[in-house]
Amino acid sequence: MSTAVATDRTAAAPKAAPRGRVTQANVLRSEWTKLWTLRSTRWSLLAAVVAMAGLGILIAAVQMGRWTHLDPHERAVYDSIDTGVGGYHLAQLAIGVLGVLVISGEYSTGMIRSSFMAVPKRLPVLWAKIGVFAAVTFVLMLIASLVSFFGVQAIVTGHHLNHSLGDPHALRVVVGTALFLTVLGILSIGIGGLVRNTAGGIALFVFLLFVLPGITAILPASIADSINPYLPLNAGFTVATSTFENGNHLAPWAGFALFCGYAALAVGAAAIGLLRRDA
């Protein structure tokens, strides 16, 4: 601390400080730091993990507690794999909002100017944000959905409803849930980068994923049926479920591929905007 308060002296003499340069790996390190050094990020991720790991278990416990009160149809279609990943209903909201914030938070605070002054080519910042957020989301959500899956199976064993990971669909649904939430996060980063405003970004995210399906529900059935399978959430969610309410849906991986396409579209539009617009 010998240099502290030395106001009339700049740092080490020019050229003494070590020289580096901007690389994608360096920008990834920077974005990793940025992600974990905000309280809001840590809380959102914690909320997503708790929701993903805990909600399914909670629901299973309630259902098993009043199993004899459920009607025969409910009991007949009961699927412990779907309950095992039921937490995604809540987790998707936390992940989506956080994805928007990862980029809109920089615009609202002015941080984006620092980011782009350090990385003037700009796109490495976007790729690094996506890479870091996707990796963190996938790992956390995979762990959480495994915890939830095994927790639920343990609870439903008493009623002989349990599945193992080796059963048809089980592994695909557990991993698929983590994949679905990861791509959802990427999609919302794209939305955040496109809208550049937290309130607007979250509104667009909620509209595309949760309001749009409600709007098609009030359309005539024939039109709704032909649109519904292609809506982002309906397409993406196919990979994260083992039973469907009806036959009107895309095949799991086809639906997920379409969902990835939507995310790519949003990210591509955000990338073009990032390059063309003033920061």
């Binding site: 070590p18 580096g20 360096n26 050094t37």
Partner: peptide, 13 residues
């Protein structure tokens, strides 16, 4: 942390 994130983009220690 702000300065650290900025420094990391260039590999500054």
């Amino acid at each position: 942390n702000h300065l650290l994130a900025m420094a990391q983009t260039h590999g500054i220690p």
